[in-house]
Write a protein that binds this DNA or RNA. Structure first.
Lengths: 253, 253
DNA sequence: TTCGGCGAATTGGTATTACCAGAAAGTTTC
DNA sequence: GAAACTTTCTGGTAATACCAATTCGCCGAA
């Protein structure tokens, strides 16, 4: 099996082969620590030459996915999905808490920098969320765009990138994506209202109001998240986050 | 020239060769857009076989450093030093402003989560700054450790990573490093006092005081930064940042 | 002179074969 | 049963050949 027919053949052979091997890693066929077939065997199986197999394996090696031991074989070092960048495995709660802190300040700074053109752009994004209500993916995208647009208004690349990164982490965390989807379903209207409140604060160029509105919005998201967590019977997780939430709410009240 | 003697030969040949090519890219011999010698030429020059040359080039290609065009050659796509992660070119002002916003919240959250053990650890770090006064690198390192320790106390990995990333960006920005070094020289004692103020707020478990102390500290850093910028006769930059600073100060007053 | 096209030279893409060195497993020997 | 040897398997590297895509110069036509 696994002949040349499996290869897409738009790229070079080694790239196709690397992609195929990547897919096999993702499929769980070769768990971390296991050994890949010998180069000669892979060459036979995929009907390519051994140099081509070596090129594909080197491509995986450079990416840190496999480790080649001379005379022994190529061993799986890391699975494709497991990013090596730190902070990949953050909980949905941590991500949203971080957004609550950072995006609140982002909104406050944005209120001091915002222009009329910015406001017009953000108005469109607020509308889009309401319009794309029917399509879950659509609202997800529009929601992201709204928050990133505000971060962009700060005119601070470091601030923008930090917040964008939080969204990227959320996208790459299956748990977070799942929880947010569950949490958002019944909440599209409140989200629009809360976004509008932030927009109003920006219009008024009032940083404190913008911070408060953004924090109120993300506090609501956090609440929804905890509710969704509870629904999924993650009782243990809820216990920990609940205590934490109360402690933080009590301290900042 | 450039015989096998250039290769370190501890690793596999393709790795040595890739390292040699990387060094040549860094040396500016092959600027972005230029073409590398043909595989056959490289094989002759480095006294290796063409498959080995191909493996090395593929290693560079996977890293996004070169782009191989069939029938044409391998072209330099990106230089080794130039990180492709976004936000690499942020100004020192942007970085410190972002820290002012984010680390203020980090300190506030930390004040709600801090334990006695955390406080003991941070006390040591505050002391180290005063002690390592003579060694610029030492104070730089101790300064970083202090701020990251507080971020760690939040128990929020997303928060910690975001702040750590800001420090990493600062380290990789020559301009920021230079400016901070100039700005810090006469300010070690104030820094220790400001850090102590943050520590006191943590001891009191007072998030609002912690936020205020951290923001005051980073505001002072920002002032020093602007002063250093001025000293370096970056009048134009100062004009932009000055106006920005005033607008933000006026709005949040 | 200029422009278009054709063809040779160059370059990367891939396959084949061969041999070496390190590692692992099996066998023999004590 | 354990140690030493031997066989076998594995990756590392080299050499060669041929194909396909590109490039570029030559040449002829306008």
């Amino acid at each position: 099996m696994a002949l040349a027919a499996n290869l897409k053949s738009n790229d070079r052979l080694y790239q196709d082969l690397a992609r195929s091997l990547l897919a096999e890693l993702s499929s769980g066929r070769y768990p971390v620590g296991s050994r890949l077939p010998a180069e000669r065997d892979l060459a036979l199986r995929y009907e390519v030459s051994r140099p081509t197999v070596r090129e594909a394996i080197i491509a995986l090696e450079v990416q840190g996915l496999v480790e080649v031991r001379i005379g022994s074989g190529a061993y799986v070092k890391r699975l494709p999905g497991e990013e090596d960048r730190p902070g990949f495995n953050v909980t949905a709660f941590e991500l949203t808490e971080a957004r609550l802190l950072f995006e609140g300040e982002s909104a406050a700074l944005a209120a001091t920098q915002v222009t009329d053109a910015d406001i017009a752009e953000i108005e469109v994004l607020v509308q889009r969320i309401a319009e794309e209500n029917q399509d879950p993916n659509g609202t997800e995208s529009a929601d992201r765009e709204f928050h990133l647009a505000i971060a962009r208004v700060t005119r601070n690349v470091a601030v923008f990138n930090a917040i964008e990164r939080l969204w990227d982490l959320r996208a790459s965390s299956p748990e977070a994506a799942l929880l947010h989807e569950k949490a958002r379903h019944a909440n599209v209207k409140p989200v629009v209202e809360e976004h509008s409140a932030v927009l109003d604060a920006l219009r008024a160029r009032d940083p404190n109001a913008a911070r408060a509105a953004m924090r109120a919005h993300l506090s609501a998201v956090l609440e929804g998240l905890l509710f969704a967590t509870e629904e999924r019977a993650l009782a243990a997780a809820r216990k920990a986050t609940q205590a934490r939430r109360e402690r933080y709410a009590r301290a900042t009240a």
